[in-house]
Design a protein around this nucleic acid. Structure first.
Lengths: 398, 398
DNA sequence: TAAACTTTGTTTATCCACTAGACAAACAAA
DNA sequence: TTTGTTTGTCTAGTGGATAAACAAAGTTTA
């Protein structure tokens, strides 16, 4: 017999406790009285919930605050060091691990670079990084509350990595492997989804609820924040906008399609286009985003033209995104964001000319604020969110 | 002082009542005992909530049901005739009004056709249709519970029609006009959004939660059902996929862009392509979807080719949709759905060849089941939904 | 046919979380 | 010193859910 969630006083208490904790998290430091007037809860209710949160070490009392004309309030603070979260950005040729507190502040980080690793070698490196982060974790009440891993590929809702073409992985159940090894909750998420969440929590998207995060690296992936929540699609495979056709009958793509966006606007496309040009100071086998950026910064017109061309093609896809989603904000992230200076102009040109007028109200086009850290911070934040999420909300997941 | 919603026993009761009513709506006829075991609520709780619902005339008791080896249960039924809803599909050259009961069954309908009406003339027609529907409403406890209107244009979240190019309307606050005139809740919604909702509630999408409804008429509009809910975007302008670029540097569109999808795959595109061909039996000024369909049915190869071409272009856009949203189902609706027989094959060809393999798990491509009625039924259902939605959920709107 | 068992729906006693309001402590201003 | 305000706790009361008892209305078994 299928039982749906009913509503009773236990739920009420849990939700209110979560509400109080959330208020302290965002308004810290704050007094009991202010929580009551902010949430609308009764003073007595707040008092009793606060005392439970104190016992659970999730908050702590600091000394008395400023008087407002009467008795001085006892200020409550969120105990951001009650536990720590591990976030890993697993790239094709690097591993970035961060250790954050419960507010997303980076306490320690570890970057490892390498080339052409097999899956087994990669797993060894991954374990090394996680172990290293754990060794450097300060002692705390809850310890490590979870491990998050961002990967450049599609991840099913159950957490299995279905296909990561640039890693050469297929159907890898890294989640179970890590959960068994560390006996901790593990979250695996697509790199673009993680980046989108990272930027929403800590970066350029903090104050927005309808965000499209475009991760432009070797390929193009997109993370969708709709109504403030990450949208994963039916099986978790949404956001494959890199394979959106922008030129019917255009270049062939390995996905089987033609004219895919990432064939025109990604790092790979940029390098391919550069190969057709003879740069006196740059041999063909040393063409890379970094080297082309250096050239552009030195004023090389051909390099600058290449970036502008990429920006133009980026604009086409972003125009589509705007027509499809009517977002508040589009964030361009990952490595291509380093080229902000040359991408902005052709991008804006496309926007102004081509987007239906009414779409442009309150529309922001921004570049990543967290740069290379957005993915790792995003997956770390997933674990924190799961740690705090009440069971009710977990079942009503959006 | 901003007060967020708190949780107390009143909320609990409201939600549980809503849960019980919902269970009766979907499982009618059902006994109190079965409601209790289905929802997990206590038998006593169910009894008391049911007696309130009976007083409110939202449900009624029928005679005793079959015994299960003990006392015979009293069967409860949803009172679908406790009120009625009006839904209007406002087209460029027609007005379709339906009167539905609370379960979406059509009790009466009225279709009016016309040509080249000004806004004022259209408003007169609209009022005539609504009045006509009201006169034909059976008497009931709650009477007409709301009016919904679907329009071919963009509608802001506040309900204002921002731009309806094919009607020639701009910034029309039809919602307020109608609310003042009839003193009833009025919902204005984009035609594609309404159609999507209609198909989800009553048509091809009944058992799915991630549905992309593609309304192919004069232009192309798209309604997005994500996680079971209509997604409207930041200002309510999402779903303008008709203006997604599928051919960079392609034909100029009135939206300012180039290579828009609807320039290749809509009814308008079909007719324009037909103009280049000499049909012996069809003069150029009589080219229309209907006439071309007749030709195709008669076996005219050129007409069939035109439809297949349209299907191919539809496939390009739908491929994009699949990569973007990873939906469970794509529904093709509106007038072009009449050409199902010739569209299916080229569409499937595009799917099979070009969509990343893992996306095709559990993916349905279907044609509208409600045909010309999906929009009208959709907006009528919006009013019903608002009528039943608990205040809690209203504030937590997704 | 009678006795025993089942199912259904109501009633009763109890529990639990929130609220309102009283209250004491701590402070500012007159 | 007096008065008034703010803060946080405490107490009594309210409302809704639950568990368990119970009555009513069946079926099954001996």
């Amino acid at each position: 017999m299928k039982k749906s969630k009913t509503w009773n006083q236990h739920v009420v208490k849990k939700e209110n406790k979560s509400l109080v904790l959330g208020t302290i998290r965002t308004h810290s430091p704050i007094s009991r009285a202010d929580i009551a007037s902010l949430t609308g809860l009764n003073k007595g209710t707040v008092s009793s919930l606060v005392s439970e949160l104190l016992e659970e070490q999730l908050i702590y009392e600091s000394g008395p605050g400023e008087s407002n004309g009467g008795r001085r309030p006892v200020m409550l603070l969120f105990n951001q060091q009650a536990g720590f979260s591990i976030g890993i950005d697993l790239g094709v040729n690097y591993l970035l691990g961060v250790l954050t507190d419960l507010e997303g502040n980076i306490c320690y980080e570890k970057l490892v670079k390498f080339k052409d690793l097999s899956y087994e070698e990669m797993e060894v490196k991954l374990v090394e990084v996680v172990d290293n982060l754990m060794e450097n974790t300060p002692s705390s009440y809850y310890g490590i509350i979870g491990i998050g891993i961002g990967v450049p590929g599609t991840v099913s809702k159950s957490g299995e990595i279905q296909l990561a073409p640039n890693l050469g992985w297929k159907n890898v159940d890294l989640k179970t492997i890590m959960e068994v090894k560390y006996n901790l909750p593990v979250v695996i998420e697509n790199e673009a989804n993680a980046g989108a969440y990272g930027e929403k929590k800590f970066g350029a998207g903090k104050s927005f609820n309808h965000i499209i995060y475009v991760s432009v690296g070797i390929g193009i992936g997109v993370g969708l924040i709709l109504n403030g929540h990450l949208y994963r699609g039916n099986h978790g495979f949404s956001g494959e906008l890199g394979h959106m056709t922008i030129e019917s009958g255009g270049r062939k793509c390995r996905c089987g399609n033609e004219g895919c966006w990432e064939l025109y606007a990604s790092e790979q496309a940029l390098v391919k286009n550069a190969e057709k040009i003879a740069f006196p100071s740059l041999p063909k086998d040393e063409l890379s985003l970094e080297n082309l950026l250096t050239l552009a910064e030195a004023g090389d017109l051909e390099a600058i033209h290449l970036f502008k061309q990429t920006g133009d093609y980026l604009g086409i896809g972003i125009n589509n995104i705007i027509n499809i989603f009517n977002p508040e904000q589009v964030i361009i992230g990952n490595r291509m964001a380093f080229a902000e200076d040359w991408l902005t102009e052709p991008l804006k040109d496309r926007m102004v000319k081509q987007t239906l007028w009414y779409q442009q109200q309150d529309l922001q086009i921004n570049f990543s604020e967290l740069s290379t850290h957005s993915s790792a911070l995003g997956v770390a934040a997933f674990s924190v969110e799961n740690f705090f999420m009440s069971d009710m909300k977990k079942s009503n997941v959006i």
